[in-house]
Each structure stands twice: as C-alpha cells, then as structure tokens.
Write a protein that binds this DNA or RNA. Structure first.
Length: 779
DNA sequence: TTAGGATTGG
C-alpha cells in the first residue's frame, strides 16, 4: 500500500521521486489503463477556491500544464483533489509551481473538449493512495516551505506470517475451511474460519457473536475475507484469531473475475480501490494455490457413503423428536437411488402441501440432529440453503427388497457440518432458482407422465432443460488440468474487463495461426523471455564449416577425463576429425552412456554420432582448452533434439567443467545440467500459436504458449518426427475441423489469463491459454 | 464464556 504523503521539496534534487515511478505523457493518458507506476508532472496554471462537496468532503481543483510536452492538441489537464489532500494543497499550491502526482485515477467525461485540455481528469485523494509532490520555487515564503504533512494509511493489513501473540490486527485471507455459524454452548453464535494467504501460513479463527449477522457470510471454501480488529493469540504453539471488540468483516466471492461486492452487515465500511485490488490479487493467487473441491454435488450425483454439500431449496420441515428434525429439500435434479421417507405426522409437517405432492419424487428428506435442530427449526420454507457435509448412507429395511438412500446431518460440527442460509442474491442461488423455475414449468405441463414413471428408471424423467443442459455440456475437445471449480466466463465479459485476470471459458476455435504447424515451434529463453526462430540446418552447417578451419590442438588430447581419437578423412581435401570420449571413473563407458565432444565433423557425421552416443557436443580447439562453437549452433545434441543456448544470457564456461558431471556416480548427462556447468542459458522449444476463440457473446485471440502440456507432444521433438507432426495436425483438425460451420465446431474448455502489454503509445490486453490440455480421446 | 477444524448414530 503506497504511503500517502504530501511534501514540499526545495528543488528537484533534494528528494528524488521513487525509482519505480515513470513519467506519463498527457497524450498517453487513458481511462481504464493501469497507471500504478506512473506520475504526471506539470506546471500549475490555474487553481480554484477550496470548496466543500455536498457530503462535506473538501474539494480543490487545479489545472496542470505539461511543460515538457507542449503538444498543441492536449497540453493540460484538470486535477480534482479530494479530502484532506485538497485542504493541504489549497494552502500551499501556487501558480507556476511544478506539481507531480502519482496514484491518481483517470476519469473520462462524456463531453468532448474543444480546448487543448485533456478529455479526462485526474482524481486524487488520500483514500485512493495518491502521492503529491510540489516543487516550490526557491525564495517562496518560509511559512509555506515548512508545511509537511504525512498521513498514515487508514488500515494496515498484516500478512498471516507476521502475526504476533497478543496483538489486534487487520488482515485479508482466503477461506480454506469454515464452519458456518452455529449456536455455541455459551451465549453466542460461533463460526470457525481457517484462512490462508500468499505467505502460505494458515490461521484458524474462532469467531463469536450474539448477532448472527455480524459473523462473516462465508458460503464456500475459496471465499475471501477481510477482518478488522481481530485479536491474535497463541494456542497450542500456533497463532489463533479470536473476535475482539470492534471486530468487523467483509466477505467476497473468491471467483476470479466475479464482481468485487462485499458481503457485510455493517452499514458503514471502508472499501476503496485498494481493497478491490487486494481482493483481486488474492483471487488470482487462490486460483492456483488453493484446492477447491470440484463442481457442487447435485442430488442426481449423490453416491452412497458420501459426504457432500448441497445447495437446495427448503420445501418442507417437521419436528421428529427431541434430538432430530426433518428438512425436505430439492435442487431440481432427481436422486438416482430410491430415497428414504422419514415418517412424520401430517400435522407436524410444515410446507405447501400441493408443492410437496408435486415434488414428491424430487424432494428428499434430510434428518438433522442435535445441535442443528434449533437452527433447522428457525428456517423459513422457501429459503435457499447450503447444507454442509450431509451424509448419504445406503440402508435397507427388513421389509424392503432394495436398499434406499438416507440423508443425515449428524450432530456436531466436524468438517464444517452445518446449515447456512443463502441470500437470493447469491450467484449459486440465482442459478438454482432459474433451474427450479424451468423444472416447475416442465412439470406442470406433463406432471402426470413424470409422476407415473417408475422411480427406478433412474434418468427416466429428465426434464427438457436437463437435456438441453446435457447438450450444452457435450464433451469438450480440451480438458482443464486444474481449477475445475471456476465457473465459465463469457468472452464478452472478459474483453470488457481489465487485466490481469484468469478465466475459465467455453468457446469454439474459429481459426488459428500459423496454419503451417512447424512454424509454431520457437525457442524461448525463460531468463530474458526472448523468442527465437529455430536455426535451420544451413546455419549449423555454416558454423561447422567455419570451425573446421581451426586445426585441432593435439595438446588438448587425452586428458584425465576424456580420451581422444583422431581420424583423417579420405576425401580429396583431407579433414581431421577428433572425437573426445568423456570417461567415467577413468574408464570408457558404453557408447549409449557416453558423452562425446567432436571437432571438425560435418552435419551428417554429427547426426550419425548422435544415434550411437548419448550426447554430442561440437567443440573447437583454442590454445589452452576446448570451447563451444558459436551459440547459433546447437551446443548439445541428444537423441533427436538439438539444444541451443541464449546468446544474450549465456556466459560460456570452460568445457572442462563437464568433468564435474562425469565424476558423478551415474552421470545422467541431462541437458539442463550440462547447460548449467557450461554457463549456457538453455533455450526451450515451445509451441506459439494464436487461437481465435468465439462464443455466443464475442471473440478474442488467445495465445497458446506450450512446451508440451497442451498437445502432449514435446515441442522439442516435433521438428524431427513425422509421426508427431501428423499427430499434431490431427489434433488441430479435431479442435478446428476444416470446412465446418461455426455451429458445428466442437467446444473447447480452456483457462485463459489476461495480461497487459504496454508499448510507447498504448496499453494492450493479451490473453494466454494455460492449464488446458487436449482431451485424451481426441486423437 | 463459547471453540480450539479433522465425519460415519439416530
């Protein structure tokens, strides 16, 4: 969190600006772009009197002219300063002074400007984390120069690895485990919440409150919470959080890309851009660091001996006895097993009789026990619930031929067992409601046929909507290798959102580039992030020819760690070829285990040697050592693969460093290890492709950057394998069958992440596919 | 104060 600071500095040299800040030209300023590390500098040409807004906030407006870049079209901008900063600035800012601001917000107004002023204005305030620097002219009044205001951030958030016993702190965390609020044995409700954050430290909090509403509204693992004033204590050698006076919490959906709307009962809370940023950052972190259980279980998917969470609607309830209570719920799907019916007196059953009859095959009985009874009694018919850790138990009564399924919510709160009421605004509830509505509609049309069906015909009464859903959920030609819990985002939503974010999408591949697949293979340096074309054989040949002019140096033959053999070719123009066989334990190894270094060989000769020996390193002689060839040539050949080094990032070391690998007990001659001892930054083969993806709402171009995972073909091997090239072509034909209409293209499920790329003129958002692979059965 | 995560009974 940037420290909000307002300073007066005499002369620019006295206190330099923070080094991460870069000057932004007015003409490059755009609403919606990330200006986090930018500042705007200009001369104050106009200022207005300090005023107060309707809500009492101080407001100060100035006009700042970019003195370095007097672009005739845009040379000045309005700056709106709010709150304490407005008051401070109004006191000290004078015309002609240099004004610098970082941490501003760019706002575009709908009206077109006709003067040379920017059509956006800057909004500046402590709350937005802005920093203002004013360079006063020498000789300004002494009183002004002494003004220096330093404002501490309003809230400081402690990472979970920095918690100390006995402190009261504010913190953010991702929910790793929780028990929904339940009635404790004392006087309060209790909720247990275990948080984790990017420090990877866990914190379990015991939260108590007499008011159910003031406990965090956590609905699922992965939700993000902000706690204010939580007390930290040590318990059993671990830090523990516990509610203290003034405890307050906000809870957010943990889904990347979902709106950042806090769930809270407080009417007053601080929530600024910084909070939004904190939540978004935690979401992205959580997406790849928290394992969230798979898709929610529906009644149609329950298995015996399963504990599951169910999102459902309450349609009936009844007192059974002192220690158990019956809930009748449905989720629109039908349990594939016969379900038990808990016998209760008709007079004890609360709920709409007509609906209960209508739903008699879809609603299930859940018996809740002990501590859950009191809460269950208070539930309202029609409300939406999430019941956590229901036990699905297969049982058979003596008088039954077939077994049935029972649903129990056992007593206690182990594993978060409990009942939570979901608000109608909850996205899962919205989805469920839509589904239930459609089921009710269908049922009212053919109720009799549905109800007359044999209950054992498991999927006999699948509704039209379900059929439609099944069609929509037809198998994708790609599968996700992680984060299956994320729900899909429409492409239009993605293209209209700011980056960086991560999304799960379901789209069709309209086209891709390059169409010639071998052109998709590049070499990538993970250190400097550069991409290179794979050199062709002519390049290598040329370098080999060049190095052949250097005569082998006999003094370098037969050392302690290699044995050397020299051949003279029988061609007209005689050539000398030297092969140095690297020894292990002073012994030569089998050829297939041996690394050789070669001087003076041709492309063909080297290629032949790679078939016989484990590794081949082309070298040439210098006065006192062997050295690698130019890095445009492969520094190592192993199997079918030529390994290259990054020219920019490599600092070749003496070849004798290989000795350290040779001396290992069982030298593996791994290219990464060889590269390391030779000071080579290994370039990796990678597929780079551009996929044009479409769905019903829009399209976007996403880059595929894949070493091996997506195609399940190593990029390093494809250039030398006809078989793999054919396999890749077939894969692409499956993902994007040539000559098909858009509607007939298969679906792809992918993860994509958006990211910003800024050049001198503008910021652009790109998308990259990740954690996605071609489905096994596609090729 | 309460709970302090860590299933399986009715």
């Amino acid at each position: 969190m940037p420290v909000q600071l307002l300073k007066i500095i005499e002369g620019q040299s006295e206190t330099p600006l923070p080094s991460h800040l870069q000057k932004e030209d007015l003409k490059h300023l755009q609403e919606g772009c990330d200006h986090t590390n930018k500042y705007i500098q200009g001369i104050v040409t106009l200022s207005y009197p300090l005023t107060k807004l309707k809500d009492g906030t101080d407001f100060f407006k100035i006009v700042v002219q970019d003195s370095d870049d007097l672009c005739p079209q845009i040379n000045s901008i309005n700056v709106f300063i709010y709150g304490k900063m407005a008051e401070d600035c109004a006191k000290i800012i004078r015309h002609g002074e240099t004004f610098i601001v970082a941490g501003f917000k760019v706002i575009k107004l709908p009206t077109e400007r006709e003067d040379a002023r920017h059509d956006c204005h800057l909004e500046v305030s402590e709350e937005a984390g802005s920093t203002i620097y004013i360079y006063t002219k020498p000789g300004a009044t002494a009183a002004l120069e002494t003004v220096s205001v330093s404002v501490a951030p309003k809230y400081v958030y402690t990472p979970l690895n920095h918690l100390k016993d006995g402190t009261v702190v504010n913190l953010y965390g991702v929910v790793k485990f929780f028990k929904p609020p339940y009635i404790s044995k004392g006087t309060d409700y209790c909720s247990i919440v275990t948080l984790v954050d990017p420090s990877n430290v866990k914190l379990t909090c015991s939260l108590f409150s007499g008011n159910l509403d003031s406990l965090p509204k956590i609905y699922k693992v992965g939700d993000i919470v902000r706690f204010h004033r939580i007390k930290i204590r040590e318990y059993n050698g671990q830090m523990q959080g516990i509610t203290s006076g003034g405890f307050a919490s906000l809870t957010f959906d943990g889904t990347v890309g979902a709106p950042v709307v806090p769930r809270t009962s407080s009417r007053v809370y601080t929530f600024m851009d910084e909070e939004q940023k904190a939540v978004e950052e935690l979401r992205v972190w959580a997406a790849s660091n928290i394992s969230i259980s798979g898709p929610a279980t529906k009644l149609s998917g329950v298995q015996p001996m399963l504990f599951f969470d169910l999102t459902c609607q309450l349609v009936g309830k009844a007192k059974v006895d002192g220690s158990s209570f019956l809930l009748k719920v449905w989720d629109g799907t039908e349990c594939p097993y016969p379900t038990w019916k808990v016998p209760v007196e008709a007079k004890d059953l609360e709920g709409e009789k007509g609906l209960l009859h209508q739903l008699r095959n879809l609603a299930v009985d859940i018996l809740v026990y002990d501590n859950h009874v009191q809460l269950a009694e208070s539930l309202k018919i029609g409300s939406f619930l999430r019941i956590y850790s229901i036990h699905a138990k297969e049982a058979s009564a003596d008088n039954e031929d077939v077994s049935h399924m029972e649903f129990h919510l056992h007593g206690g709160t182990c594993y978060g067992r409990g009942i939570g009421v979901l608000p109608e605004s909850n996205p899962d509830v919205k989805e469920l409601k839509e589904f239930l509505d459609s089921v009710t509609l269908t049922d009212s049309q053919n109720m009799e046929s549905v109800c007359s069906m044999d209950i054992d015909s498991t999927f006999g009464n699948v509704t039209d909507l379900e059929l439609h859903l099944q069609r929509c959920q037809q198998l994708s030609v790609t599968v996700l290798t992680d984060h299956q819990d994320l729900s899909n985002t429409e492409l239009k939503t993605i293209t209209s959102s700011t980056a960086p974010q991560q999304y799960r999408i379901r789209a069709k591949l309209r086209t891709y580039k390059p169409q010639k697949l071998h052109q998709s293979v590049k070499l990538h340096c993970s250190k400097c992030n550069s991409l290179h074309e794979v050199p062709d054989r002519d390049d290598f040949d040329f370098i080999l020819h060049g190095s052949a002019r250097t005569a082998p140096n006999p003094e370098l033959h037969n050392t302690s760690w290699y044995e050397s053999v020299t051949w003279t070719t029988q061609e007209q123009k005689q050539r000398e070829i030297v092969i140095h066989f690297v020894k292990h334990d002073e012994m030569l190894q089998h050829p297939e285990d041996t690394l050789i270094m070669i001087e003076g060989g041709t492309l063909k000769e080297i290629w032949k040697l790679t078939k016989r020996f484990k590794c081949v390193i082309p070298v040439r002689s210098t006065e006192d050592d062997l050295e690698l060839l130019d890095l445009s040539a492969p520094f190592l050949l192993k199997g079918n693969v030529k390994y290259y080094g990054c020219k920019q990032c490599s600092t070749p070391k003496p070849v004798k460093n290989l000795n350290s690998i040779a001396a290992e007990q069982q030298p593996s001659w791994e290219p990464t290890e060889i590269a390391q001892v030779l000071g080579i930054e290994l370039l990796q083969y990678v597929f780079i492709m551009k996929f044009t993806l479409v769905d019903e709402t829009g399209s976007l171009n996403a880059y595929l950057f894949d070493y091996e995972k997506f195609f399940q073909i190593p990029a390093s091997e494809i250039l030398t394998s006809n078989f793999l090239q054919q396999k890749m072509q077939m894969t692409m034909n499956a993902l994007c069958p040539p000559g098909r209409k858009l509607g007939d293209l298969p679906w792809l499920e992918c993860f994509i992440k958006s990211y910003n790329v800024r050049d001198t003129v503008k910021n652009q958002v790109y998308y990259q596919i990740f954690d996605t692979t071609v489905a096994e059965d596609v090729v």
